[in-house]
Structures are given as C-alpha cells and as structure tokens.
C-alpha cells in the first residue's frame, strides 16, 4: 500500500562515451509530496530524470546499475508503456514538447498513445487544459502562443495522461515574473506528486517543502527546503547560490 511513488536505489550510469553521470543515487518520493531536485549544471539531474521514465537505462546503451521503480512497478523494457503513463516528464523547452498542429492534438497525443479515444479523450484534453487555464486556446496552433502559455500547454500534455508523478525540468526558466507566479499557482493547485528540477531556489522554497541536492552524480543532501537553503557551507560546496538579496530566513512560509 505504502510503496513510494518513486523509488530509486543505487542508480549509477555511464554514457556510451564513458562519461559517468550518476554514482549510486538513492531517492524516494511518497504520494502527494512536492520535491525539488537541486544541483549545479552537470550534476546529473537530467540524466536522473531520463531514467525515471526509462528513456535511459542500463539496457538502452551505456553502463548502469541500480533500480528505479514507480509505485512498485520496476522500470524495465516490458513495462515501459505503463511507466511512461505513470511518470509525466515536462521538458525544459516547450517547443520540444509541442509538435502537433493544434493545442488539442498535442494534448491528445499522450492519452491517444495509451489507446484512449472518443469522448474520454476529449474529456481528458479539456480537463488537462482547464487545470492549466488554457482551455480557450484548444484550437490554436502551439507556435502562436506566448512562451508562458506554451509552457502551460506542455504541462497539460502530460497531465492528460493522468500521471502518478509529474517531473518538471526547469519549469520557471525563461518565464517573466508574472508567468512564473501563474505557473506556481497552477502547480500548487494540482493534486499530484511533483518532482521539480530547478536552479530557481526561491521557486523551490515557494513550492516544495522538501529538497534533494544532487552534486557530482550523487545525492549530497535531502531535507526540508528551508534547511537546505539555509545551510551555507552545503550550498557553497555545491555551487548553489541564492539570488542577490534573497534570504530564506526572511521568507514567511506559505500556509
């Protein structure tokens, strides 16, 4: 019953060119948690994310060890379709994610790959777009939307698959402050487990009670976001820097 949504054990991985990105990562995320994955550039965050839905694995080329399972289901070739339903990954550049002619077709792409058709497909598409406040744009081509709107549609494309865990790669990057706040409101309103890869530390503090720091391919800290951000030696050791003038001690936590 209480299996973690995400269970990563001893995950190690080296790319086919020999570059080793992960050195034994352990990570558990439980249902309903919102977790920030922090770390400097090149820490292995993206490599880790690509393992969560089986895009990368020991048998996809490269050398790896360890195991990932999602709600008790191991990430293996035989389970890939179900794993990709359970783990929804939103990539950093919405132009990579939105490739169909209309917003509707793009949001329908995932659930249609799961074999959903007809009225249920329509319901999922509209529900997902409602959740991100983009329902009125359903028949527009994605490249006519603003960057912030495209980011929200990209989130909807994954929500339409009704995933158990939503994985976001740098959700706040390139957004203006208003779009950034709107996205935060949307993410907070979703009833879904969340893992958010980010360099935006105030955003992590705002949205995620828990943070995991990945550095040099290993987890070096795992605790409350406030404690992580307030731990100056830890932050300095792993090239994490707060924006000028930002002090987590002066932030009143959200109720």
């Amino acid at each position: 019953m209480n299996a973690p949504v995400l269970d990563v054990r001893g995950l190690a991985y080296a790319y086919p060119d020999g570059h080793q990105a992960l050195f034994g990562v352990d990570l558990h995320v439980h249902r309903g948690e919102r977790v920030a994955l922090l770390g400097p550039n090149g820490a292995g965050k993206t490599t880790l994310v690509l393992h969560l839905n089986g895009i990368l694995s020991a048998d996809s080329g490269g050398h790896g060890a360890g195991a990932v399972s999602v709600s008790g289901l191991p990430v293996e070739k035989a389970n890939l379709a179900e794993i990709r339903r359970r783990v929804g990954v939103v990539f950093q550049d919405p132009d990579d994610q939105l490739f169909m002619g209309t917003v509707r077709a793009d949001v329908a792409f995932g659930p249609a790959n799961l074999g959903i058709r007809g009225a249920e497909l329509d319901r999922r598409v509209m529900h997902a777009l409602d959740q991100v406040g983009m329902a009125e744009f359903v028949d527009r081509p994605p490249h006519h939307l603003s960057f912030g709107q495209r980011r929200r549609v990209a989130v909807a494309t994954v929500l339409a698959m009704e995933p158990e865990i939503l994985v976001l790669d740098e959700p706040s990057s390139n957004l203006d402050p208003a779009s950034r706040r709107e996205l935060a409101d949307i993410l907070r309103s979703l009833d879904v487990t969340l893992l958010m890869v980010t360099h935006d530390l105030p955003y992590a503090l705002e949205l995620c009670p828990r943070s995991v720091v990945l550095s040099g391919g290993a987890v070096v800290a795992d605790g409350s976001t406030y404690d992580v951000l307030a731990d100056e030696p830890l932050m300095r050791a792993h090239r994490l820097e707060l924006p000028f003038g930002f002090d987590p001690r002066n932030v009143t936590p959200r109720p």
């Binding site: 895009i55 783990v87 990579d96 792409f109 790959n113 799961l114």
Partner: peptide
C-alpha cells in the same frame, strides 16, 4: 525523447472526433 515520454511507439495515434 518528449514523444517517447508520452508513450509514442512509432505510429501516430489516430485522433478522431475533432
């Protein structure tokens, strides 16, 4: 990669009922 992540298996799903 983004397509694979949403369950693409090499064929575009037929989305009817527009």
């Amino acid at each position: 990669l983004a397509m694979l992540s949403r369950g693409y298996t090499g064929r575009m799903p037929r989305i009817e009922g527009r």
